[in-house]
Design a protein around this nucleic acid. Structure first.
Lengths: 210, 210
DNA sequence: CGTCTAACGCGACGCTGGTCGCCTTAGTAT
DNA sequence: ATACTAAGGCGACCAGCGTCGCGTTAGACG
């Protein structure tokens, strides 16, 4: 394994970005997601991904170091892409929508497969876990916008830590989905949003103190 | 693979529980945890575990079906063992202690390694994930006692769903630990406990309605 | 105390995931 | 336009995981 860290970086920004490398990278990411969605992590094999992408095995191992690196790469790409952030003018609705968005994404029969498989797969290696951390950091940062706007409008007290509110809203949902494996329903999403807002207004998420 | 489900059950309750089988099982569980703690999941190999336990490779594959089964078995054993539940007479303190217990378990330099490795490993396979679900179900059930007692004492309103309160208390912590990989501190534990209690008293965790 | 059989020990084998060295191709720089 | 080089293609090779069939052992039961 020629330095995993380097491999991941290379996957994100090759020293020779033009033309072929970029195409190979794109093809491999696509193929990875496709294979992952169809067969799941346990049946995921580098050879199958390569075959689908029309790329040689050795290349995949060189650039990504294995299955885990490929998943980390796919996740890194997803982290860059922007996510629709609700903006109704009312925090309560915005946060509720945030929670509902997560609920829908991982529940709807047509939408859930790929995201579920991708995150589930990321949990299965140290490399993937690291990429997942970065992914959520990016997402939280984006979603925090909802909170900062609300503070600006006076709908939430000043001290509130935006990211903490976002975390509190989504944590119970991801917890159910990926840790306890309990079913996720609308009520759970609503509860999470309401509880998070309540705590924020009680000053529990204030950045400064405990 | 000869029916994974069956393999897990067999690991839990062999048809011939007396003597040797039981010893083999115990030795293997111990060895699994030891190897897992020392080397981590990625370096975990059935052969090494068997060598340490003085058990033949084929036996391990027959009974547990592979590394994942061994981890599921270890987890199933942990799920059975009781956990110390706080009982101070005051819910606020009890819930706070519940959160703190999680915090300590996964933060203290001397305690954290094995539990962290075990849960982390469980997340890396479907079999392990299933065992993890059962594990948390058992834990939640035990911890719910704190809440039912509090309701009996009139410290919490009647409708509160005990398990939901426990979940809300611990979810943010496990979320940080195993999903986003963010550091866990005392403040986070306190926040989780306080927020959960607040939500419960606001009726957000009432069993009946949304 | 003798018999029965479930479970374990044993070693050899096949398969597949991952590596290596060399050659070819396609961006890049001048 | 031409030379340079990073990156990909290629196939052979190696090792370690997981399997299989058989012999052995030790609980269980009368």
């Amino acid at each position: 394994m020629p330095e995993n860290l380097e491999a991941t970086q290379a996957a994100t920004a090759g020293t020779r970005p033009g033309g072929r490398s970029a195409r190979v990278r794109a093809d491999m990411v696509t193929a990875t997601l496709a294979e992952l969605t169809e067969k799941g992590y346990d049946q995921l094999t580098v050879e199958a991904i390569c075959h689908r992408a029309g790329v040689h095995k050795a290349t995949a191992y060189r650039r990504w170091g294995g299955v885990d690196g490929l998943i980390a790469g796919a996740l890194a790409l997803s982290a860059d892409q922007p996510w629709p952030i609700p903006d109704t003018g009312n925090v309560d609705d915005d946060v509720e929508l945030l929670a509902r968005e997560v609920y829908i994404t991982f529940t709807d029969r047509d939408l859930r497969t790929t995201p579920t498989a991708l995150i589930g797969a990321a949990l299965r290696s140290d490399l993937g876990a690291a990429a997942l951390g970065a992914f959520f950091a990016a997402r939280h940062q984006q979603a925090a916008e909802v909170v900062t706007r609300a503070i600006g409008r006076g709908q939430l007290p000043f001290g509130v830590d935006p990211v903490e509110l976002v975390r509190a809203t989504t944590a119970p949902l991801y917890h159910r989905l990926f840790i306890t494996g309990e079913p996720l329903d609308e009520r759970a999403a609503h509860r999470a949003a309401a509880a998070a807002l309540l705590a924020a207004r009680a000053g529990l998420f204030d950045a400064a103190v405990r």
